[in-house]
Every structure is written in C-alpha cells, then in structure tokens.
Amino acid sequence: MQVMPEKRNTRQYMSTVRREPQEMTPEHLGQLLAEVAKSRSRIAFGELFRHFAPRLQSFATRQFGNEQTAMDLVQETMTNVWHKAHLFSPEKGSPTTWIFTIARNIRFDILRKNKHRQNDVSAEDLWPVLSEEMSDSDEEFALDKNILLQEIGEYYLQLPDAQREVVEQIYIEGKSQQEVSDTLGIPLGTVKSRTRLALQKLRELISEQN
C-alpha cells in the first residue's frame, strides 16, 4: 500500500508529459490499449481517456450540434474502449482509427434511436467493429455462436456449476472468452473447453426435449 500511490504519482506525472500531442504516437496509444486489455489498467485508460475524450467531443459536437448528445457519444465510445480493449488489434489499424469506427457506429445508432423504428438494424450489423466474430478466429467458437440465447432457454441451469458459470457470462452477460478468463482467473483454454463441453451438453438436452 505504501508503494502504490508513489507509482501512481510517477505515472500521472509522466502522463502529463506524454499528453503533448506529438508524444501520443500510435505505438504508445496501442500500448495503453494493450495494458487496459491485459491488466484492466485504470491509469492507462485514464491517459487514453484524456487524449480521446476532447477529440470525440469535438467530432460529436460537429455531428450533432448538441453538446449533451455529444457527451453521450463520448461516454458511450470510451465505455466500449474500457470494456472491449481486447478487441483492438494493431495489425488491423491504429488506435485512433479503431476508436473512430466505434464512434461512427455509436453516432449511427444514436441518430436512428430518434426514429423509433421497430427491429431496426444497428451499426454493428453493418460495420462489425466490436463483434467477437471479427476478432475470434477460433473455429469452434464460431460454431458455438450458432446457438442462440432463446435456444439455450432454461437448459443451462442443468449444467455443472463450472460450465454454467462460463455459459452465463458469455451468452447472458455477453462477455468474450478472454473476459471470462480474466474474471474467473482461469486460463483461456479452460474457458474454451468448458464452453465446448457446455454447448455439447446443451445440444443433447435440447434434442432430448424435442
């Protein structure tokens, strides 16, 4: 407890130095995202937030002409960055580009929400940025996505505890397998195998019932 605040201060000092625009290289921003993804670093996220929030605010104010709606876009975009940093991959582009595409999608959804259409498309249907299907190339997991929430129904309650926990987090809370691994403190491979076993069991249970 003695060491932590000191470390924090150093980082905060460094982050004020780094806040100079020319220091915010794509590499540095990418490192911050990686820290958020890997260790949920609040300090790294703070630095990202202070870099991007005023830029997103400026973008959104130009788009909406309304400061409150603009703030909503900033908050929603950065909330996704905080929770979905693991979906960023440097091979696909720079952090600025990735965050811009998230903001573009949120803008689209905000504009359409005002039209109150039923069963409308969402931006993710058109430009999947945050969908796990884009980042997870694991074949088995892709197969597993064929199981819909409504198909799972109550059946998952009959699973062994360890499997039920994983299924709940993925299919009900919408977490990625990586997030489940972080939350439960178990290896990613274990999450994958539990998901696989659970879905196998679910398929059996469902076909027994029908």
Partner: peptide
Amino acid sequence: SEAPMVAPKSA
C-alpha cells in the same frame, strides 16, 4: 460501469 450487455449474435 458494467460491461455493455451484448446479446450473442448468431453466425
């Protein structure tokens, strides 16, 4: 904040 709820999409 809580992680945004995302209903899993079918393939």
